[in-house]
């Protein structure tokens, strides 16, 4: 599969703290790429750079092989990269369809549209279509999102991202707050998202979940990419070893891991 989103030698520091030291990262179309690492490894920082929320100090970010500048999350979205934040960023008082089209409302054609009039019918139908095609269990499209269960809320946030992502969906700990049954459903959903052909970047702490959901696993430690494994052949011991440095799959001296 082709690499859609790539980071090459990305560097980021906050003051004197080097958070990312020449990190490489690649996400391929139609695959789930898990990004794992201990607390402080630089996962969040890397994700924020890839979603436009932070600016890198050095290195390159490429989309479809071409270097790009992502000055803002809005720019990243224009490039087809959607992010599902850990706090989901849903409006609890609004419904699933209204959330799905937040900031991207469709207007009616003609004069009514020029007056700013919303095309609620079409938005609702398109959201319903997206929820159904993703096989989510969001049944009540009129209930405020705040009234849905945690898993359903997660589904709404993921479906919203999928509706708009042309290239990449980044998910930050999508199962962190969920029970076992709902986690299973969300993992299924993550797999289905990848099967639509977009690249999925999955950040998680849960090792078995990584092996279940991901195609590839890339491990960050102390601001460096220390391992790039195929999930099919990897084991939990390998992952934990790479994360903690007890068992380096690849050497982590700078420049050597390219």
């Amino acid at each position: 599969m082709s690499v859609v989103l790539e980071a090459r030698g990305v560097v980021k520091s906050f003051g004197h703290v080097d958070v990312l030291r020449e990190v490489d990262f690649a996400a391929r179309a139609g695959e789930v790429t898990a990004l794992i690492g201990d607390n402080g490894a630089g996962k969040s920082t890397l994700i924020k750079i890839l979603s436009g929320a932070l600016q890198r100090d050095g290195g390159e970010v490429l989309i479809d092989g071409k270097p790009v500048q992502m000055g803002s999350p809005t720019r990243a979205r224009e490039l087809g990269i959607e992010t599902v934040y850990q706090d989901l960023a849903l409006a609890p008082e609004l419904g699933p369809a209204e959330n799905a089209f937040a900031g991207r409302e469709l207007l009616r054609p003609g004069l009514a549209g020029r007056l700013g009039m919303l095309d609620k019918k079409t938005m609702r139908a398109r959201a319903e279509e997206a929820f159904t095609s993703m096989g989510t269990d969001v049944k009540d499209l009129d209930a405020p999102v705040g009234a849905l269960s945690g898993g359903q809320r997660q589904s709404v946030a993921i479906c919203r991202a999928v509706m708009w992502a042309r290239r990449v969906v980044i998910m930050d700990e999508p199962t962190a707050a969920l029970g076992v049954r709902q986690t299973g459903k969300v993992i299924e959903l993550v797999r289905r998202v990848a099967s639509t052909g977009v690249a999925v970047v999955l950040i998680t702490h849960n090792m078995p979940e990584v092996l279940e959901a991901a195609d590839r696993v890339q491990v960050l430690r102390l601001g460096r990419m220390v391992a790039d494994l195929e999930a099919r052949t990897a084991t939990v011991e390998q992952l934990v070893g790479a994360m903690t440095g007890a068992l380096d799959v690849r050497t982590d001296t700078p420049g050597d891991h390219r």
């Binding site: 999350p73 706090d87 960023a89 849903l90 008082e93 937040a102 900031g103 409302e105 207007l107």
Partner: peptide, 24 residues
């Protein structure tokens, strides 16, 4: 109730951060 301005008003009141991230 019917326009984008109104919807953005609700969005901001419901979750300002979400509105910001949605590009409002």
């Amino acid at each position: 109730s019917q326009t984008r301005f109104g919807r953005h008003t609700q969005l901001i009141g419901s979750n300002e951060e979400s509105a910001r991230r949605a590009g409002v």
